[in-house]
Write a protein that binds this DNA or RNA. Structure first.
Lengths: 147, 147
DNA sequence: TATTGTTATACTCTATAACTATA
DNA sequence: TATAGTTATAGAGTATAACAATA
């Protein structure tokens, strides 16, 4: 029965490979954790950034999260349609939209953050608090390296 | 001119968020590094696993890399069509395919690994060797957590 | 002219279900 | 009946280019 697990060869010393696999594992469990909420990783990112920056422009949210303008459109449409985000023309620049969370959006964010905390605790159950901090700090330095 | 960068709020302590962003940043630079080769992250993973396990079955490669059987089909087709992978019916199980790298496949893998090493060196230029090892080890523990 | 958001579009990755041929 | 691979299909993320309205 014991199926010998395969060698990954030249992939093993490559950080990019491990990043991809670890990120995929997290995404999969994240997806399960969100079951029933309708939320996905991108949407939750947007909710969190709008929450932290009420009145922020649509484009600025995209920039903060690495989402292209063109792709923001339908994502924001989804959130507005779900009545989680309110979108009004920005008074000081009528080209732009000013975004805020609705009450339902705030409740959704709070619920999802709860779920995510349990999901992360599950994924990281054999990591010390120190290891978790180290990991986040190292990853944050990689993100920052984007020119 | 200085555009204030936006707060990411409740995302900041979430490991999953940082994993996703760091993995995305790596994927983007990986893509540039592969320019002209026609290789992508998944395809390179397959080449590396076939290289490390000559004669391996198609399904086993998928399992090792977390790729579903159904999705392996067109990926292997691509590699066979590009004459990087040779696919023959497995002598001991005629349902299965036995995969090996062609000479062109070995050359492609070698070229891409060179490019990837430069790409990773670029992404990790301000990381010590110790930090890189730590990061890989922590990530590998997350991958292993997949049930 | 530059910027904000929009539309249209295409490619890739991933997922499920139903099928075939071998075992 | 179980497994290896296949087909068809759908959802999601991301990319580019051309456009309208506003600055």
């Amino acid at each position: 029965m014991s199926r010998k697990s395969l060698a990954i060869g030249k992939l093993s010393p490559l950080l990019g490979y491990h990043l991809r696999r670890a990120s995929g594992a997290f995404a999969l469990d994240f997806h399960e954790a969100m079951s029933g909420t309708g939320m996905r990783q991108v949407l939750l990112g947007i909710l969190a950034v709008v929450d932290a920056n009420p009145g922020v422009n649509q484009g600025a949210v995209g920039t903060a999260l690495g989402i292209k303008r063109a792709n923001m459109v339908s994502l924001i449409n989804e959130l507005v349609y779900a009545e989680l985000v309110a979108r009004v023309v920005a008074p000081e620049d009528r080209r732009a939209f000013s975004l805020t969370l609705t009450e339902a959006g705030q409740a959704m964010l709070a619920d999802c953050i709860d779920r995510i905390e349990r999901h992360e605790a599950r994924m990281l159950s054999d990591f010390t608090a120190d290891e978790q901090r180290t990991l986040i700090q190292l990853l944050a330095r990689i993100e920052a390296r984007k020119p």
